[in-house]
Amino acid sequence: MFETFSEMWGFAFMRRAFVTTTVLSASVAPVGAFLVLRRLSLAGEAMAHAITPGVVIGFVVAGLSVFSLLIGGLIAGVGAAILTAFLARKTILRSDASLASIYLIALALGIFILSAAGSAVPLKSFLFGSILGIDDASMILVGGVATVTLLSFAVLLRPLITSTCDPVFFEAQTRRPMLIEQAFMLLLVLNLLAAFKTLGTLMAVGLMILPATSARYWSSTITGQLGLSFLFALASCWVGLTLSYLFPETPSGPAIVLTAGGFFLISVLLGPLGFGERLRKPSPKTSSSLTQPSTRERPQ
C-alpha cells in the first residue's frame, strides 16, 4: 500500500492535482456553504451552465488559455446574473425561473458554438474537466481565485451572515444591500471558473454543494459549517484522486464528486442534524423516558 502511494506521489501530474484541488477546496468551501445557507444551491448549478457560452467563445477566439476562459466566463457569468436580476425585478418571473431560462439558453448556445466551430477540444473535456492534465496557468488561476475568495470572505463574512440570516433586517441596516449579493455572485462565478478547468461544467458545482450540505448535518454554527465544508471538500478531492489513480478507468472529476456524495450519504445517516440523533436515541414509544419527558423544545 505504501509503495502504491509512494508511486502515486512520484508522478508530477498527481502532485499537481493534489495541490490544485487542496487550494480549490479552500476556495470553494465557503462559497458552497453560503450557497446552501442562502438557498441558492440550484442557482449555483445553473450559473455553472450559464458561463459555458462565454468560456466557449473565449476558446474559439483565443484558444484554450486561462485568460480567455477567465474573461469569457466572467462576462457570461456576470451577464447572466445581471439579466436574471433584471427579469426578476422588472417582470412577473421569479429569480429561479429567470435564471433557469437564461442558463438553458446559455448552455445550448455554448454547445452549439462549440460544435459549429468544429472544436479540436472534445466536448467531454468541457463537461468533466481535466484535473490530471492541469497546467501552470490553471494552477495560478486557482491560486489567484482562492486568494481573492478568502480575502473577500475575511472582509464580507459578517454582512454575509447578517444578510443570509435576516435579509430584511440587513436591508434596513445598510444603504446598499445589493452590493453584498453582487459581490457574492462574483465570487461564485470566479470559483466556478477556477473549478471549470479541473472538474468541468457538470462537476464544478458538486465540489461546492455536496461538502456544504454534508457539513450542514454536523454543525449548528457558521464556524463549524465553514470548517467542515472545507474538510469534506478536501477529503473528497484526495480520496477521489486516489481512487482515480488506483483504478485508471475511473475519471477523476466524477470520482471526486462521487466521493463527496458518499460523505453526504454518511452525513445524512449519521450526522446529529440528520438521522443520526434519531438512530442513537431509542424511540420514545419503547423507551422508559416516557416517564421523564424531554425538556428539549420541538424545532420549528
Binding site: 445557507l37 459578517r158 451572515i161 443570509t164 440570516c165 441596516q173 454554527t221 463549524g224
Partner: peptide, 29 residues
C-alpha cells in the same frame, strides 16, 4: 420584521443573533 421573513434554520446561536444588533458598532472586522 415579521417572523416569516426570518431564516429559522440559519446556524447561529441566540447570543450571536442578539449581537447582530450591535453590528454597526463593531463594523466589518
Amino acid at each position: 420584521a415579521q417572523m416569516t421573513e426570518f431564516d429559522r434554520r440559519f446556524p447561529i446561536r441566540v447570543r450571536d443573533l442578539a449581537a447582530m444588533g450591535a453590528w454597526k458598532g463593531f463594523g466589518l472586522r
